[in-house]
Design a protein around this nucleic acid. Structure first.
Length: 500
RNA sequence: GCGGGAAUAGCUCAGCUGGUAGAGCGCAACCUUGCCAAGGUUGAUGUCGCGGGUUCGAGUCCCGUUUCCCGCUCCA
């Protein structure tokens, strides 16, 4: 992969996104906010259409119910889910070789002698800093309580004050240099905030790092109120927040993003069957909306790399200009989540299976798509530069269902009553479609403007319209035109856009 | 978080060794029009990313900072 073309493509997309009103940088007039983006007039339509198609595909069926859970949830939810523990690993970097280490595993990379020596160095400093001695003893006691074994180094290195001395005494496991570590930094990937005006620890809540937990905790509410039997699913679209260490690649890694998740509850013995079903179903969804087939692939997670909750996992990846990137994950989450919520809430989340006459905690097959990532993939995938009559044409070949604007209405020239007819067509079409009226400049220029916005149809009122009430409809990708009578436009568009 | 590059009009970019900002495209108005961005006339727009410093004078030199891109790292 060469660097330059990649840059060019992504930068072209970013520039087009801004120029045409798909995506703007957040708080741009203040210099921007790292990794945050706003959706402009065309962007919000595209995003909304993606979500709408997803919603139809996932919930317009008997066995899936919708849900919109609150972003703020009880803090215990995130203890049960494992996010509180696993989102808070302190990290350090070696300034010399740029290696990064999790503080809690650094001890494993250093030999015992060195660790012992570092601890002794620390103890020597106690005379100057009496407070450290108390701290040290407390840390050791806590470590003893938790796992019995006392590795003084590993216990002390978790303390934000004591570890500074330890880190200055040990060499980097990778490059061997001494005194090259940055101070330990806490990477808490959950955004923390407070309920109510008092900012004390009892009031801490988190912005959800995934929408899934809102589904899990509502499992029985939805199941009983909708009178569902297993297998069935719960679908939800919503924002999630992760305080990522660094953002990257335009919309790909951002701190605020939107998920389209569906959690499917199944009998544990049927998990494989349903996992395979959703795996294929979800890939086909992207293809059905026009995404290039050979730019999509599965990336199956090897068993040893699976997340703590997963039994089987695959990513649907899109080939972005910067490489393959995940746009959706399909996971077999087993009964991990519901079991944990049972444990932490003390409420039973078991399901009574009428057929089998037994009670069990369902397994969950998760399909978790990134709305923002899908947006970016659909946008990039639709972008083409073509040569037409020795001129460059840039065009967004969105599937008509996703196109922000469905049709443009254009009077060929601004006279002879053409604008009036065009306006009346516009008024009629607006009842059903997002349309756009444009009478500025030459007709060719207007077509090209619509190409760049991804509008699939351009309806032109011309001289012939005046005598026989027909218009031309120009199709974006082929640039072919057909002639159709005015009263048939609406049905024609509807058939093409919403047919399967 | 580290390293590298970049930031000048809506977009793409020019602006030399410091001397009070330019082009093309786009945009707006009017005229013209007869189906694929190239007709005419007129017009608007920038505290040159932000903050300091050096200087008589900074888009230009120095320091800091923010944002974007690339590479590491991270991605529970």
């Amino acid at each position: 992969m060469q660097k330059k073309p990649q840059n060019e493509i992504l930068e072209k997309i970013v520039s087009l996104a801004k120029r045409r009103g798909f995506v703007f940088q957040s708080s741009e007039i203040y210099g921007g906010l790292n990794g945050c983006w706003d959706y402009g007039p065309l962007g919000v339509e595209l995003l909304k259409n993606i979500k709408e198609e997803w919603w139809k595909a996932m919930t317009f069926r008997e066995d899936v119910e919708g849900l919109d859970a609150s972003i703020l949830m009880h803090p215990r939810v995130w203890e049960a889910s494992g996010h509180v523990d696993s989102f808070t690993d302190p990290m350090i970097d070696c300034k010399s070789c740029k290696a990064r280490f999790r503080l809690d595993v650094l001890g494993e990379l250093i030999n015992e002698k060195k660790k012992h020596k570092a601890v002794e160095e620390l103890k020597l400093k106690f005379t100057d800093n009496p407070g450290w001695k108390d701290k040290f003893e407390t840390v050791i006691q806590n470590a003893e309580k938790i796992n019995g074994a006392v590795d003084e180094f590993s216990a002390a290195i978790e303390d934000s004050e004591l570890n500074a001395i330890l880190l200055s005494e040990v060499n980097c496991p990778q490059c061997g240099n001494k005194n090259t570590f940055t101070p330990a930094r806490q990477f808490n990937l959950m955004f923390k905030t407070f309920i109510g005006p008092v900012e004390d620890s009892g009031a801490v809540v988190y912005l959800r790092p995934e929408t899934a937990q809102g589904i899990f905790v509502n499992f029985l509410n939805v199941q009983s109120s909708a009178r569902q039997k297993l297998p069935f699913g719960i679908a939800q679209i919503g924002k999630a927040f992760r305080n990522e260490i660094n953002t990257k690649n335009f919309l790909f890694r951002t701190r605020e993003f939107e998920q389209m998740e569906m959690q499917y509850f199944v009998n544990p013995v049927k998990d494989k069957e349903w996992y395979d079903y959703w795996k294929s179903e979800r890939l086909n969804w992207f293809i059905s909306l026009g995404m290039t087939k050979n730019k999509l692939r599965y990336h199956d997670h090897p068993v040893n790399k699976l997340a703590h909750y997963a039994k089987e996992a695959t990513d649907i990846e899109y080939h972005f200009p910067f490489g393959w990137g995940e746009i959706e994950g399909i996971h077999n989450r087993t009964n991990f989540d519901l079991s944990r919520h049972e444990e932490f809430s003390g409420k039973s989340l078991k399901y009574f299976d009428e057929e089998l006459k037994e009670k069990y905690i369902p397994y969950i097959i998760e399909t978790s798509a990134g709305a923002s990532r899908s947006f970016m993939a659909f946008l990039i995938d639709a972008y083409y530069e073509e040569e037409v009559n020795n001129e460059m044409r840039s065009v967004l070949k969105f599937h008509p269902k996703l196109a922000p604007i469905k049709a443009a209405i254009l009077p060929l020239v601004n006279k002879d009553g053409m604008p009036e007819i065009a306006r009346s067509i516009e008024k009629e079409l607006r009842k059903r479609f997002k349309v756009f009226y444009d009478d500025k400049g030459a007709i060719g220029r207007r077509y090209r403007r619509m190409d760049e916005a991804g509008t699939p149809f351009s309806i032109t009122v011309d001289t012939q319209t005046l005598s026989d009430q027909t218009v031309t409809i120009r199709e974006r990708d082929s640039m072919n035109q057909i002639r159709i009578s005015i009263d048939k436009i609406s049905a024609y568009l509807n058939d093409i856009i919403f047919s399967d």
